[in-house]
Design a protein around this nucleic acid. Sequence first.
DNA 1: CATGCGTGGTG
DNA 2: TCACCAAGCAT
Length: 367
Amino acid sequence: MVSSALPSKRKSQPENRASTARPAQLLAWYDRHRRRLPWRAPAGQRSDPYRVWLSEIMLQQTTVKAVGPYFEKFLARWPDVSALGSAELDDVLRMWAGLGYYSRARNLHACAVTVLREHGGAFPDTEEGLRKLPGIGPYTAAAIAAIAFDRLTMPVDGNIERVVSRLFAVEEALPQAKPQIQALAATLLGPARAGDSAQALMDLGATICTPKKPACSLCPFNEDCAARERGDQDTFPRKAAKKTGTLRRGAAFVVVRGDELLVRSRPAKGLLGGMTEVPGSDWLAGQDDADALAQAPELASVKHWHRKLGVVTHVFTHFPLELVVYTATVPARTRAPDGMRWVPIATLDGEALPNVMRKVVAHGLGE
DNA sequence: CATGCGTGGTG
DNA sequence: TCACCAAGCAT
């Protein structure tokens, strides 16, 4: 206690000071602890909008670790939006294979084409303009506007939702709480450096204010966090438990002709849209695989099927999948059925094969 | 507003 | 092990 002469409002003073000081505290923490990431410009420099956009699309629901190699590959092959907008969609899908959420790759290409043809190769520099582009929603538009164009806006992603919901102990559950969290997040924005403020909150969420066992002792807001005050910070953000999908089953057919594999392309939209697969049955809940081969009339001429032991399992966002794998070898010069084609097994790495299909092929070709 | 949409990491 | 989660978007 310094003195009894302090004014009576002394008790409320810390809260006022903290609320106005938060933006500066956040940036001070960021200046000391910011992560160095491939798509980030050095401190104090503005980032190339193309790199910001490319990274933000890849980072949607995807970890920094997973994105790293893909970002480098894309940047090396297509160094600017003009190059990417001039590329073939199939090449983009091939390069994206393995990263997941393949509609992002289709929208990425469509966005590059639009920027190239309708915006002269320059990204719109406002949130509103960015929001109109394919694959760019509310979060990504705000993120690009703030990080690449220094617009005073606060994007809100999963990290920031978590940090903010803890800092203010937001009791309302997601997604209903989104407007409230958006408004609270905006109070962490100072008069400048909006992009750094957003990235600071994301770094904080990724490294300290983590979903489980947050490292509160290292947090710049640890004296100022409503949830920590209550001791239940790991229960935020509130959200309803999500249900796991029903198991689906199906069959996949690995047909080999010499050193080639029979494949086809999936429909452009929907699950694994536009990606390459081996022929197979539908994937249905409660399905038995006993009559799987009857579901592939186009393969009726293939003889000597061998059912591989075991199953391939894969978990999608909304359902787990079990596939039985049948293999067959056909004579040289056997024609591919309509809509299918032969690809050299040696070049499968470069195909637009989603991981579930890589598992199937590995299982089918393995001993 | 709810659902569909990949994959890999985590405790 | 397995439920949850990761810089969300489109419909």
